[in-house]
Amino acid sequence: MPPADQRTGSIYDLGYRRYDGLRLGRQHAVLSLYVYTLRGAFGIGRRASSKIIPIIITVIAFLPALIQLGVAAIVSDEVDIIRPENYFGFVQVPVALFCAAIAPEITGRDMRQRTLSLYFSRALERRDYALAKLAAFATALMVLTLAPQALLLVGNGLASKDLADYVGDNWKDMPRTIISGVGIAAAMGAVALAIAAQTSRRAYATIAVVAWFLVTWPISGILVAEVGGAGRAAALLSPFDFVYGATLWVFDVEPDQDSVQDLAEIPLWGYGAAVAAYAAAGTALVIRRFGRIAA
């Protein structure tokens, strides 16, 4: 602040000014698009009605953790703790819902409203666009797969008699939990986005994603359990089944008796390979799609 008695004045030019500050280039562009898309996936910065569905689905993903912690707080800490791999078995359902409801928005919005030409005429390559969108969507899904587990871990730790003991007991689950959460998000997210990006119509994109989840599921169940033989390979067809198989593999747990993974008799690492293959194929398809689309 200039001293009050100083008798000089200035009038500032408020017109258009040139910008000669930093220009951060491509990396920054990709990061911005990533953040913007991630916020958009949960409806942050958008109208209330865009938030409802992502929030409901996210809440569903947190429900078991909240119930478990509630019970532990009120009744006792002796209740059975939900195992991480079992939680993944449940959380697949909200993840699938999130894919169906939100994947069509991730790129479909830009296609419908023709914003693509604005992106592609900026310091951004088409491949960058595809990868930023994909990364943002996968991250959104990781919020669903990993955050409830983190909450559960912290909550259970605080509720247990001896925090240090608890952490020590559960330490080895941490990397496994992270690997599983990332794998689920990557495989389901990449394929769902690859499917959804094929059309700009939201309704068709949703139905197509849903069909992938829900049609392959009973097919896998029926082919593996009731048909058998070569049909057992169908366990690799349904995202719910191969993702859960991969989780079992990561946690080194035997499948339940008569579950699809038990009946299919595929070595568990096969599911891990399937997760990687689906993630890679989905990513390649998304890149290909936006490499060719007219802007």
Partner: peptide
């Protein structure tokens, strides 16, 4: 569509 999906599958 989304509401219908939630109804059917949830």
């Amino acid at each position: 569509l989304i509401v219908g999906l939630l109804y059917v599958f949830i």
